[in-house]
Design a protein around this nucleic acid. Structure first.
Lengths: 212, 212, 212, 212
DNA sequence: TATGAATGAGCCTTCATTCAT
DNA sequence: CATGAATGAAGGCTCATTCAT
């Protein structure tokens, strides 16, 4: 058993090394300049060996995206944990959103690669706009929880909460994407925009029972 | 003269045919799978001839992006014109945003290609988050005009209006991008999301003097 | 007649313009980067028209080489003329060789192109080593004349004079080629080499009756 | 170990085969008509494989030139060795020069390609006219040694010896180039020219103390 | 005379993938 | 497990030349 276990472990380590090489190449040159040869060169193995661990280039790309998605979710959960200490809902919303934005901006290239990929394999992890996302997507679920704590007179059905969460999430997503694309904005403008975004979202959350 | 005119026209038609082939290829396979050879094959000419009409692949891509950007701006202006008839500010904001969203969704792939391109040449047209965008970008300018008509007690400085416009714009952008990426959402969910987005933005606009 | 003459003249002028464009392109980028298209671009005509004046690229190259050869011979003759005033043979030899070297160095690229070309068409003008070159090649003929004026006791047959002239010519040719190839030599080293070459050639000419 | 050695040997053999194909193509069509495809065709492999053994076309050309240069230097050293037996200086000079000329003529095309190449990489091996060449270039050094053995009354400084050696070398170079370019000269004329060249150089060497 | 469209061949290079060893 | 050889396809591009107009 020990031998087989070791083999299995070594296999996993090799796969990890390949994915890490892929990841660093992608963050350096972009996802479509990635090539098997470059990965092989970086891990100092021959190109052929990669096909012992992955079916082909496509599988590597998918695994890369999954990996990055997992990293993100992990990061997000740490955000959640920090925020769980009892806070007034407004502050909780504000903090959660801000931390999420800062986190995604810190891995901008990967975030962009993952979140704009529209292959089914990746979308099965990253889609957030479908009905019922509150149950399956932690980010949306958390936002819903948060929104439900506002004094919203119970008037709003569950479905409007989920939709509002999705809109707030998409709004952050849009801001993040623009900040990534318009990459040379001055620091203070970035801060002003984030601050305005947070105010606006709070405005939505507090005004929610009026406008729906 | 007629002869020269005809030649010029034919030349322009050929350029258009090339760009159209490029456009359809891009919408089918994405902008980075585009190749001169594929364009040639599609227009049923030899690859070489393309260099008769364009300097190289880069020029074709740039022209494609410019073209799509122009189309968008044109579309947007028609939106503006339709909305100019005196309306209460809330309705104006609502209609403008909705029409803009529907328009961009109707050319989703192109919109995505243009708006996510981060080369300086393209960004010089498409950037919207910089300070002063209200003057240089019609979309932001229009939003600012609209926002300023809300009963906002003059408390908000110009700069907060611009920032708020940029946030509202980015929020729409994020929703649009998600709707493009998560391409198989049921029609009714799309409608619910758009509707919720519009309500939320109005909520920001009306609540604007409270939260700032 | 006048019309035909004018047409002929215009035709010749066009040919000249093409050859000039070719010449400047060659001196800028080298003879094998020359292309019909570049010529056309430079004379601001279409590529096709060139085939009305020349059979093809090859003919242009040959004409270019012939042209440059003619220029050189012309230049050489002016050297000769200047030197014809009665001078002691040693001075005459010295001056002629020096002027020739300086002249060729001033058009180094062309000289190199012409003199290293080994197609029959060009060689029929440029060959100098064949028996009888003294009659057909002015440069060799001139050198022979010069050498015969040394006090060489008539011991040397005509053939040795021609051979000696060919050797002296080749020696200059070798020095010139090296100076062209080793293009970054300091000025003073170039001068020292030329001076040493001239001394050596005089040494050959004066010592000629001893060693043969 | 045997296996690795064999692999290494096979790799070297393949590289050699590629270089040989390149060499024969160059001698047939000239160095600038060389192409990767033609090499591939000649060795009956696909073009791509060549990049397995060489970084690109440039590396092949450089290796070719280095190879030919090495061959030449090797050949030259064998000349030197043969000539080292005590001979009167005149005979030594004569024999050395003659053997060198005959050797270069036997690989005429390659010699020409190498010696007329003016890229820095190649010139760093082949330049001979710079001050101090006697120390760095065996051919010049050898000539200097030879010249210094003539009864030249110590009048000539080291620098004139080096310059004279460079002139003698260049003179041979010029003759060789002409013999290569004017490729169809009758055998006896070639012999007469070489003989006359040798006499002339001896004449320079013996007359050296008079004219300087 | 002159044009501009068009081709087909050629160029260097990169790549994903396969396979015998 | 790992390699290195090998291929075939593809990519961007340049060019000499032809030809209808």
């Amino acid at each position: 058993m020990t031998k087989e276990q070791r083999q299995l472990r070594e296999r996993e380590e090799m796969k990890k090394r390949i994915l890490q090489a892929a990841a660093s190449l992608i963050s350096e040159e972009g996802i479509d300049k990635l090539s098997i040869r470059k990965i092989a060169e970086r891990i100092e193995y021959s190109p052929g060996i990669i096909y012992h661990y992955f079916q082909g280039k496509d599988e590597i790309v998918v695994r890369y995206l999954q990996q990055k998605y997992t990293d993100m979710v992990d990061g997000l959960q740490s955000v959640q944990r920090k925020a769980e200490h009892e806070l007034p809902p407004e502050m909780l919303l504000r903090q959660s959103l801000e931390q999420w934005i800062r986190m995604t901006l810190s891995t901008s290239v990967e975030y962009r690669n993952v979140m704009l990929n529209d292959t089914p394999a990746v979308l099965s992890y990253t889609a957030v706009l479908f009905k019922g996302a509150a149950q399956e997507r932690k980010a949306i679920g958390m936002l819903c929880q948060c929104l439900s704590r506002f004094e919203s007179k119970e008037l709003h059905k569950d479905s409007s909460i989920e939709l509002t969460a999705q809109v707030i999430w998409s709004a952050a997503f849009g801001l993040i994407m623009r900040l990534i694309v318009e990459k040379d904005l001055p620091e203070e403008q970035v801060e002003a925009l984030i601050s305005c975004y947070l105010n606006s979202m709070v405005s939505i959350a507090t005004g929610i029972y009026m406008s729906l």
